[in-house]
């Protein structure tokens, strides 16, 4: 008899992913406004944006193919799947065994793959440019990301995120140089992967600096809503991956309801702080020229490889 309880927790987690992601984005935007001395639109503005888009009609270019219309759904579905796997509130998720951390990276790769294709589908210069740049960034960020997480997984001798977190929670805390390298690399990569400053600027549509926005320029209505939402979830998930690999303390290790609730509270607290950290980085840095990005990502890749090397050499 399969226990039903973990599935309920799974469902709760997915709902949290879906609902908290816009909230986190709202929080970040709010913080940013405060830091820049502007009045913010409020914590819940992202929800309103998505809802509004859902109610709008879809405007589609004449030559958009089925791929263009299919992509938002796929992107959304895959992102949500990733959300069901990453241990966010509990380590005992039934879905956690579906995919390990390599698969999660691959799931994000699917998102990137299809988004890039969709960007090229319409046949505008912007779309192609966005796709080209996105693939360039992705091809550097993805291995770096893998390497950073590999370092953690080498320590915990597993690639399953839940088990990795489990090991980190239960093992005695040691300051490991490899972890430090990995964490630093991970931060850099997360900025790139989620399209934040200094790699991309999610807030502008300035022609020549766009990357992610360039690809989805032709989307409208519910398609755009799905993509935007998926993007928010992605930001959220990257943060939670970071939490699960580096600061898992607080995530529930059992199916106990109290622990779960504690896990949720811990999550909210951590996210809150990470949001502040993100804003500190974003306001402290300027957007880079596109061909400085490889250097940025290259150093991330280097750092993560160094992390893995130092595991083999120093530990």
């Amino acid at each position: 008899m399969i226990e039903l309880y973990p599935f309920i927790i799974e469902a709760i987690q997915i709902v949290i992913v879906l609902l908290f992601a816009p909230l986190f984005v709202g929080w970040v935007r709010m913080l940013k406004c405060w830091f820049q001395g502007r009045t913010s639109a409020g914590l819940f503005q992202p929800y309103r944006g998505i809802l509004k888009l859902f109610h709008k009609d879809v405007i589609l270019a004449e030559n958009a193919s089925w791929l263009f219309r299919f992509t938002p759904y796929l992107v959304f579905g895959v992102t949500v799947l990733a959300g069901g796997i990453i241990p966010i509130i509990s380590l005992t998720l039934p879905f956690a065994t579906v995919a390990d951390v390599i698969a999660i990276v691959a799931l994000f790769a699917i998102v990137r793959f299809f988004t890039a294709l969709a960007g090229m589908d319409i046949g505008t210069a912007f779309g192609g440019m966005g796709s080209s740049r996105e693939m360039m960034i992705g091809s550097l960020a993805e291995p770096a990301m893998l390497m950073a997480i590999f370092t953690v997984s080498l320590i915990s001798q597993t690639t399953s995120l839940s088990n990795m977190a489990d090991v980190v929670i239960h093992k005695e805390f040691i300051l490991r140089p490899s972890m430090a390298f990995a964490l630093l690399a991970f931060v850099l990569i997360s900025l790139a992967e989620t399209g934040r400053i200094p790699v991309d600027n999610p807030a502008t549509h300035l022609e020549l600096t766009m990357i992610h926005e360039a690809m989805i320029l032709e989307y409208s209505g519910r398609h755009l809503a799905l993509i935007e939402w998926a993007g928010m979830i992605k930001l959220f998930l990257f943060t939670t991956i970071g939490i699960a690999s580096f600061f898992p303390w607080g995530i529930s290790t059992s199916v106990n309801l109290i622990n779960i609730s504690a896990g949720i509270i811990f999550l909210i607290l951590k996210m809150g702080f990470l949001g502040i950290g993100l804003i500190l980085i974003e306001t402290g840095l300027a957007k880079m020229r596109i061909f400085r990005v490889p250097e940025f990502l290259g150093s991330a890749f280097l750092l993560s490889t160094l992390g893995m090397l130092s595991y083999f050499i120093l530990e």
């Binding site: 709008k56 879809v58 589609l60 270019a61 004449e62 505008t124």
Partner: peptide, 10 residues
């Protein structure tokens, strides 16, 4: 049901 409008490229 929301409508889909096919339009020329921007």
């Amino acid at each position: 049901k929301t409508a889909i409008h096919r339009v020329p490229l921007w």
